[in-house]
Structure formats: structure tokens, C-alpha cells
Design a binder for these strands. Structure first.
Lengths: 337, 337
DNA sequence: CTGTTAGCGCTTTCAA
DNA sequence: TTGAAAGCGCTAACAG
């Protein structure tokens, strides 16, 4: 592997000039620039990012912290962030928390210290010590899916999205509407569970519909959890005529449970999810679409702008719109089957 | 951010001793070791990986190259690899090719040069120049999903897996079996399309069933492609009684098409996929399960062992088993609905 | 426009 | 067991 010194020697210039030419800096004669770049390509030279980082203090790496990777939402986020970073010449360093202990270890050790220039936090609700730890790093931090004073953030309005879903069911004449929810008690989880629950209750209240605690069942944001939650609702003395699941994946679980009970969707029970998961269309599931990749690109781009100093005081918190997508699971006339 | 020099000063030793103590090297007195580690934690010291890399030549980074991120298979791979790397104290640098031009740019620039110690290639069929470029890097390379002489690899037997799927349909009495395939013409794609096609044909031949080119339809490994492929088969003068889709996602597309035509699964057309995608169970889809995370962990672990010099000549190519999973899409008696 | 010089923070001989 | 010193490859003043 050739070094800058060899390139400089071959081009007949000093290391400084070679460095300037290669980095596209000003004050280099066209002739020198030309000879340097020829020498570099002849030698197959690549700058040692490690040596460059040591002197500049910048790594050209952005750390991305996720609670999971193998879930549709996070994979989509990673894709969006990676695309934005790659375009700007940054590398993506992936930190997956995996579970509670992984999370604790991460915030204790902060393995990304001195390894990144900025951090993207994907849909994690951070507690105060965690936030403090991240701030203490001194890097710009971008939050995706949540907002917190002083941090850059991009998200959707989960409350409004949930309200839209429930209003759709109400407009169809349903009043006994079940909710398959996430866990709001665990303070370390995402905000969606909390916000989508609020939206659900708001919509019912606004419509003058009495809410029933029995109809709010925990589904843990998984297919299996959604299935069990639905089963529990179906065991009620008076079962719901419609269900809002806080995620499409929980809605899939509900579909399974409903089919087991030989109940037809939407004739016996109407169903709407949230996300517009990649398979929602084939499942013919009505849902509230959220722009995942767009959120990822937005936060990454703005973080990069901050790093480059070109942010120009652009607002700290961006809220992207959601959209109701009506399919066969609430409207039989739209059923594709 | 404190430096090694400050730690050394605070502990009353030289930088050399501090470095040795911190890295757990031998020849350090217990007393010195103790004082150094106290000083380090007092100061909140973290080694500058960048400076360390510059002198050792090792980065503690592993590059992972993927064609996509936002597809179930690759997200699962990333998760497995990340877990294995994290455990060994390595960071994961993500390189997503995205498309043909991204791929070309990647192999031309090789942006991971001087940034990683090893490379994992996830389910990409590399052509000779690409393979040469990767080899030329001088890093250990691990292939996931394919094998190539001289490289470490972990994969499944796609031919055998496909054969199993088709044999299952044959055992059910089907003879007119359609195939929804991937694109075998594009030399830059995965091997699965090619291998699963072979398995399909092998199984038919072994059973003495005449294969029909009209029944082999391109589905491009997407839901939409699977749907269109199925539509085309249903338009044939004599439609198939069973379909093998080379991926679960294409099978989902087929389910959609079949429902549109009011055909029942499996009564009118039996259907089997490949992968055991996370939603295959809720779709009640029979399939051939492949251990994705296990493949990822295996290749990452062995790559790390090679790096550590502890590989001990462990075989270069590991083939993990697949498993037939029978559900309601081929066996009505097992239907969960 | 170009070259000289001084480190960035660390590991690793080599000597003591 | 410990320390001094020499770089790893590069960038960024500072002169010229």
C-alpha cells in the first residue's frame, strides 16, 4: 500500500502539495494537480483515513444506534441513513443494542467514543442519563422518531396518525373499537406506544364514544403479541367490531387470530394497522403510512449539514406527514380479493 | 478528551507502561497496573482507536457488503454479523451497493481500503474482476450464501432445498408444478436463482415428470414480481396445480394473484416458498427454512478466528442445513385457519 | 503556488 | 519491570 510520500516523490512535489492536490484544496497549480493525480492513480494510492483522522480529529464516520436491525422499520431506517451518508462520503458504523443488557453496556462503555463525528439514534426513547451520556460525547446527535429539546430530530406525528386510523373506523360506523397496543409502562421503549394510545383515546373522546379499558390490549409490537391480544379481545363478552393495531405486524397477528375464529375481515371485524409495512398491501391491510426512509434521509442529511456548518439554523425538529391507506381490511368494496 | 499521556502522568508511570497496562500486556507490575487503571477511569480515558490503528495497522473494523439492507434476508444477516463482531470487540462498517451503478462505484473506488481488517460479502455473486479487487485488498474475505475457491464461506445447499420443496409437492400428487424464479441471466445476481432452478428441474426429472418451459416464470424475487409471474401462469391453457416460488416474498405475490382469481390455496393451487420469512407463519405458507442468522454468525466468527490466527485450518466452506416446513398452503389439514 | 516543519496519540522496539 | 525514543501517514500552519 503506497503512501502520500511515494505519490509526492513520483509527482516531483512535496507531501504538502500532494496532499492539497488530492484533497482538492485551492492554491495548487493545474500542472502540479495533474501530475499528482496521475501519480496517485498509477500507484493505486488511497489516503489513510486513519492517519488523516489523527491529525484532523474528524473520522468521516457516523454512528447509528438501533434497538433492533432485523425488523422492517429499522432496516428501512438503516437503508435511508446509509444512502445519505454514502453520498456525502461518510461511513456508517452500526451499533445494535439488541437487548437491555446490551443497551446498558453500550451507554456505559460508549464504544463509539473517538470513532465517529456524529450519531443517529433510531427510534429509541432515551432516559436522562443516556441523553446526558450522548451529549457528553460532544458530537452532534440526531434523533429519529422522537424529539428532545436541544437535539436535532425527525419524526412523524404518532398521535395524529393514530387519530386518523380510529377516525376512519368511526366514519365506517364502528363504535366498539379495540386497540392492540405497545407497552407504555416500560420507560425505555419507543414513544409510538404512548402516542398512538393517546391518538386512539382522543379520537374516541372527540366522537363521544365511551372508551373501554377491556378493549385496550397489549400486543408488544410483534406478530405473536398481536395474535394473543386479539384472542383476548375475542374472548370478551362483547367483542369489538373493529380493531386498531398500533403496528402492521400486530395487525398480522390479529388477522391470524380472526381467521382461526372463522371471523371475516372486514365483515365481522374491521382492522387497521400502522406503518404500511412492505407486506401490508399483499395482506390487504388498511393502515396509516409513515415515510420511514424519508425520515432517515432527512435526519442524516441535516446532521451532515450541521457537521459541515451549513445547517443555517434550519429548525431542529422536523415532522413528516402520515397518510391513511384504505384497503380491503376496512372497506370490502376495495378488497383486492 | 484525555490522552494516554495524561493517564500516565496521573499514574506516575511512562506512556509505555500505561499503554501496556491498559492493553493487558504482560510485564507490568500489579501495582502499576492498578494505578494506571484507576487513573484511566478517573479521567474517563478511552484509547484513540485512530492513533492505535495508525501504529498497529489494524482497525478493529470489519466491512460488510450487501446488495440491499431493507429486505428481510439482509437485515437478518446484518443482525447476525453485528452480534458476532460486537462480541469480539469489532465494529461493523456498512457498505450497501444499492444498485448496479453503486456496485460499479464500490468496486472501482473500494472505499473500505485501509478502513477495515476483514470483509464479509453477503449473498453477492461476484464476477472475476470483483473477486480480484477484493482479493487484492489483502484482507481476509468471508462469503455468505455462495462459495468460491480460496475464500472462507458459509451457505446453504440451495439445490437440495429447492429439490425438497418440489419433492414435497410431488409427494402430494402434483405433477403440473409451476416455478416462480429469479433472474438467472443476470450474472451479477445471487446464486439462489440458478441453484433453486436446478433443484426444481432435478426433482421433476427424478420423478419422471416432463418439465414445461411455460411453467418456469420470472418473478424477480419481489412480491410484485411473484404476483405477475403467477398471473402469467394462470393465463396458460392448462394452469399448474401447484407452484414453487423461489422465495417467500414471491409466494406472497402469488397468494395475492390466486386470491384475485378466487382460487383457493391449497385446494385449487398448492403453494410453497423458500426462506421461512418472518411472516410466512402468519401467511400459513409452507416453505423451506434456511438459518439466516446462523450463517451470518458462522461466517463472522470464522473470519474473526482467521484474523486472530486461531482458525486452525478450519474448513473453508461450511454448508448449513435447510428444513421443510409444511403449513396450510400445501396441506389443508394443517391449515391454521 | 510550494516546501518545511511540527505534531495528532499511540505502540513498540531497545536499553536500562 | 520500566522508560526513552522512534515513528505510523497525514494535515496545517508558517515561511518563502
Amino acid at each position: 500500500m503506497s503512501s502520500l510520500a511515494e505519490v509526492a516523490r513520483r509527482a516531483g512535489v512535496s507531501k504538502a502539495t500532494a496532499s492539497r492536490a488530492l484533497s482538492g484544496a485551492a492554491h495548487v497549480s493545474p500542472a502540479a494537480r495533474e501530475r499528482v493525480s496521475t501519480a496517485a492513480s498509477d500507484l493505486g494510492y488511497v489516503v489513510s483515513s486513519t492517519a488523516a483522522s489523527l491529525v484532523t480529529g474528524r473520522t468521516k464516520n457516523v454512528g447509528v444506534i438501533t434497538p433492533f436491525i432485523n425488523r422492517w422499520f429499522f432496516a428501512e431506517v438503516l437503508d435511508g441513513v446509509e444512502t445519505a451518508l454514502r453520498q456525502a462520503g461518510f461511513d456508517l458504523l452500526l451499533y445494535n443494542l439488541g437487548d437491555g443488557s446490551g443497551r446498558a453496556r453500550f451507554f456505559e462503555l460508549l464504544p463509539l467514543r473517538k470513532r465517529v463525528d456524529a450519531v443517529v439514534v433510531a427510534s429509541l426513547v432515551l432516559d436522562e442519563p443516556e441523553l446526558a451520556a450522548l451529549s457528553g460525547l460532544g458530537y452532534p446527535v440526531g434523533l429519529l422518531g422522537t424529539a428532545h429539546g436541544g437535539f436535532l430530530s425527525t419524526r412523524i406525528d404518532d398521535v395524529a396518525g393514530a387519530r386518523t386510523a380510529v377516525e376512519h373506523l368511526l366514519s365506517l360506523g364502528h363504535e366498539r373499537i379495540g386497540l392492540i397496543s405497545g407497552d407504555t409502562d416500560d420507560p425505555l421503549r419507543f414513544t409510538p406506544p404512548l402516542h398512538r394510545l393517546h391518538g386512539y383515546r382522543q379520537a374516541l373522546r372527540a366522537a363521544g364514544v365511551q372508551s373501554d379499558p377491556d378493549l385496550e390490549v397489549l400486543g408488544y409490537f410483534t406478530i405473536a403479541g398481536g395474535s394473543e391480544a386479539c384472542e383476548r379481545m375475542l374472548a370478551l363478552p362483547e367483542r369489538p367490531t373493529a380493531i386498531f393495531a398500533e403496528s402492521d405486524e400486530m395487525a398480522y397477528g390479529a388477522i391470524r387470530a380472526l381467521r382461526r375464529h372463522r371471523l371475516r375481515v372486514p365483515d365481522d371485524v374491521a382492522l387497521i394497522g400502522f406503518d404500511d409495512h412492505v407486506t401490508a398491501e399483499v395482506m390487504d391491510l388498511s393502515t396509516v403510512r409513515q415515510p420511514v426512509a424519508a425520515q432517515a434521509v432527512d435526519i442524516a442529511t441535516r446532521l451532515l449539514a450541521t457537521l459541515a456548518g451549513t445547517n443555517g439554523e434550519a429548525g431542529g425538529d422536523v415532522v413528516l406527514p402520515t397518510e391513511l391507506v384504505v384497503r380491503g381490511s376496512t372497506d370490502p368494496s376495495r378488497s383486492v380479493y
